[in-house]
Design a binder for these strands. Structure first.
Lengths: 336, 336
DNA sequence: CTGAAAGCGCTTACAG
DNA sequence: CTGAAAGCGCTTACAG
């Protein structure tokens, strides 16, 4: 059978406390004993059970990561960054795809609490933050990533979505666009609301009124259909700002489907700058989120929060950067 | 403090054994007692600690998923399927990105063993399967997904990579191509070897000799550079078969970079059919893997294996399907 | 520098 | 139908 700490202790002729001490580098053990015990552990292929140690020490070295969908490239890239940064500090991560569905959020929240994870990163939207109750009630250290619920006071890492939306508007306005459409995410998603707000205010500051009929919310699946609606308006927009790259791709496809040429007939700007943005036709102008930095920062923030739960929650804002490719140009230009 | 099973037992005036029984639906408990206890658990917000139960029952309800990179869309989609299917049976999944690096594989293998996961899915390549020793030596139920190591006898789910490579060759030959190039993955990846083998044998059966100079291995990062090498050969291929979509995209970009037009000047066929394939310019002809089915099947296989460890290892082969889009056409045709 | 002992929060024979 | 008790494999004061 697999050896336990008892087997090692017996083999070494010491108590399990001593073995535990050398495992954890605690207490004072004479150098010889320590190395002797190390050798025995290696020889017997002994690795301490993290389940047993978790039961006493209250540390599982596991984190939960809630995202809408791990197969969405943006969140897959976030997950990789979180995994790597967690790994640096000895933490593993459970993936939890919620589809932005409150029930799934709540189920995962309860599950992670039962699994006694050391902390949870919430990168998913939801209608009611009460879905997080199982976590918050039980004092599981929790941080938000790229999402905010002002009613919940937890540490947060966001990108400046407002500034991102503003940058998109600025770019389009400078190109000469005046009739602007928006393809937003569901209204329950705070980051999307902020992006639209930044876009709108910047447009209005430039004297451009956003026609409410040209602002449409859409789930990722219906992006193409919703974009089609926009493009078939009698007075269709000359540019569309999409709140994520997947929606922008839907718009790209809808445009091609109706025989429009991008950016000639309509400029399209996305958000996120996932791997997708560089492979589309044409490559997508998009507001880049600093994905790797977000993942690293949120893990560090969470670990700090685990270490000192009392502190007032930090809020870290990361800047987005407009990445200009070929899906945007002057309206009805002929630069093809 | 958070209630434990003792608090519930005390409140209900029963023993902890009885509470445990109602939690697990075991033993015979009178209906009234059971419901009384249920009510108390709900009222006190009690959820059993899975750490404590794991220590006795030996079931953690956690699985490990080793992939090269969770941010690679193919594996992200696999992960989602695995997560969902695991969830159906009460399992959570740890993500483990290995970069196909033996050291990382071994580190994760040891870690997952220490975390006492109930099973592990290996969807990553590696040079030496001995990197899996920490798992195999300790009898952690393990299955392979889309990878094979004949020397290791574990249950496996693969797609018929040979047939996939063959289908790609067939398609290109039927279009009239005679000078074929291949962009393969590292040689340590069995699935890639099989794809190339199927491609080559089908070509040879049609009397077409593959020039070894036109078969290049490439990591994902260098795909573009390696594709460029192919395209700059004096006698460049009229078609390139790429062993995954990411490589195909590299080839697409390399071709565009050198002023070639796809598929006019060169046809490109990928493998995987991730979300990427439908957004490229032109959309990618690619060999589709049944990703969702792969994820579901491998989880079921693993759970069966956990249930009856003694059985001889099953090997399940899923069929790929060629998905024809616009990156392939007759050589030097002018269908644009 | 080292060990005896209690305890983490459960499950599981076993006895009644 | 229900409970007393042992045990899972560790960590952690505490004593010496």
């Amino acid at each position: 059978m697999k050896p336990t700490i008892y087997d090692i202790a017996k083999e070494a002729g010491v108590s399990i406390a001593t073995v535990s001490h050398v495992i954890n580098g605690k207490g004072k053990i004479s150098k010889e004993r320590r190395e002797e015990i190390r050798r025995i552990m290696a020889r017997m292929g002994y690795k301490p059970s993290m389940i047993a140690s978790a039961l006493t020490s209250k540390k599982t070295y596991a984190l939960g990561l809630l995202v809408p969908d791990i197969s969405n490239p943006f969140f897959a890239e976030i997950a990789r960054a979180v995994e790597d940064e967690g790994q640096r500090y000895g933490y593993s991560v459970f993936i939890c795809s919620t589809d932005n569905n409150d029930e799934k959020v709540e189920r995962y929240a309860a599950l992670l609490q039962q699994k006694k994870v050391d902390g949870v990163i919430i990168g998913t939207g939801m209608k009611e933050p009460s879905a997080l109750e199982p976590l918050l009630r039980n004092g599981v250290p929790t941080v938000f990533l790229a999402r905010e619920f002002p009613s919940v006071r937890v540490p947060t890492v966001v990108v400046n979505d407002y500034a991102g939306g503003a940058a998109a508007a600025q770019h389009l306005i400078e190109l000469g666009h005046r009739r602007l459409g928006v393809l937003a995410e569901q209204d329950s998603i705070s980051s999307s609301r902020e992006r639209v707000r930044g876009f709108r205010q910047t447009a209005e500051a430039a004297g451009i009124w956003l026609d409410p009929a040209l602002i449409i919310s859409s789930g990722i699946k219906e992006g193409k259909v919703k974009a089609l609606e926009l493009l078939q308006r009698e007075n269709r927009p000359t540019a569309i700002f999409c709140c994520n790259d997947l929606l922008a791709i839907g718009a790209l496809q809808a445009a091609k489907g109706t025989g429009l040429s991008i950016p000639y007939d309509c400029s399209i700007v996305g958000f996120d700058d996932t791997v997708l943005a560089s492979v589309t036709d044409p490559p997508l102008t998009t507001v880049a989120q600093p994905i790797e930095q977000m993942g690293q920062t949120v893990v560090q923030l969470l670990l700090r929060h685990i270490g000192q739960p009392g502190e007032p929650p930090e809020r870290i804002v990361l800047p987005p950067v407009l990445s200009i490719r070929q899906s945007s140009s002057e309206p009805a230009c002929d630069k093809r």
